[in-house]
């Protein structure tokens, strides 16, 4: 059911990757993305993948979790691979009716597949080892220079925090309302598309009303706890930068340089 959707992808742990400053983790993830997109040859791509596998190994998480992150995107992967296979000129190796598959096509398909897979696994290293709360805090810090352009950084971060807090609550609430309407004879499974769309109204209306009521009460509770925006606010958890953070940043720059170097050499 709805509860099976994992909103929170965080797996607590004590590994070195878990303990890194979340800001550095975000920056390193970005460097990694650059690596993967910049890689033009299979060798440089392998260098990027080696970096990813190294990071993953350091998280001390089960390798099976890597597969888990890929499951929801299998259709995307298949489509990417298939499209790449068919739309490249080259020596034909297989033909069926009007469909032809070329060696270049296969090469490209494999390349794209590796790229997408490593992107997903690489970014899950970030989300698996960093709690959403830490992520939000780090984003707020990283974006804070934008404040001078009147960009509402704090408000955005607060909205993210509240969403993280309330998504599970609202999912649970939706399930309750669905059960209650089923008990009144609502039928969500049968009927034409139009009938089924209409059957959702008795779920959506109470859900919206409840969300607004919650928002109102939450706003009141926040006011009572002296909330007045980001001005003059402190944070309990301070992001601390240590030698490990600097070292990992240096390592990732080293890999990035390696990717560029290998590409130039191999061309």
């Amino acid at each position: 059911m709805l509860k099976d959707i994992t909103i929170d992808q965080y797996f607590p742990g004590k590994s070195i990757v878990h303990r890194l400053d979340a800001r550095f983790k975000i920056i390193i993830t970005m460097i990694f993305i650059v690596m993967i997109f910049a890689a033009d040859t299979i060798w440089s791509l392998m260098t990027g993948i080696a970096f990813m596998l190294l990071s993953y190994a350091l998280t001390a998480l089960k390798p099976s979790l890597m597969v888990k992150s890929l499951k929801p995107v299998v259709p995307v992967l298949v489509i990417t691979a298939v499209l790449n296979m068919f739309f490249f000129e080259g020596e034909e190796i297989f033909r069926f009716a009007f469909i032809s598959i070329t060696d270049e096509g296969v090469k490209n398909a494999v390349f794209m597949l590796l790229r997408v897979v490593s992107l997903i696994v690489g970014s899950s290293v970030l989300t698996y080892t960093t709690s959403p709360v830490e992520l939000t805090g780090a984003m707020e810090k990283l974006l804070s220079p934008l404040k001078i352009f009147k960009f509402p950084v704090h408000e955005l971060a607060m909205m993210m925090t509240i969403s993280l807090r309330f998504i599970p609550t609202l999912i649970e609430e939706t399930e309750k309302i669905i059960s209650a309407q089923k008990a009144r004879g609502a039928d969500f499974e049968n009927g034409s598309l139009k009938e089924r769309a209409a059957a959702i109204v008795p779920v959506l209306v109470p859900l919206f009303i409840s969300a607004f009521r919650r928002a109102e009460e939450l706003a009141l509770a926040m006011e009572c706890r002296c909330y007045r925006g980001g001005e003059g606010r402190t944070r309990m958890k301070q992001l601390k930068t240590g030698p490990a953070d600097i070292a990992s940043l240096v390592v990732s720059f080293f890999f990035l340089a390696a990717v560029f170097f290998i590409d130039r050499k191999m061309k």
Binding site: T161, E217, A221, M222, C226, M236
Partner: peptide, 29 residues
């Protein structure tokens, strides 16, 4: 403290929520 326990907890982690009021009033970390 209000009636509905769900609608007065702001943060997604218990200790972060307890810290909320103190953060608002600018208490040192």
């Amino acid at each position: 403290v209000f009636q509905n326990p769900d609608n007065q907890i702001v943060a997604a982690v218990v200790e972060e929520d307890v810290a909320f009021g103190l953060e608002n009033t600018g208490v040192p970390p």
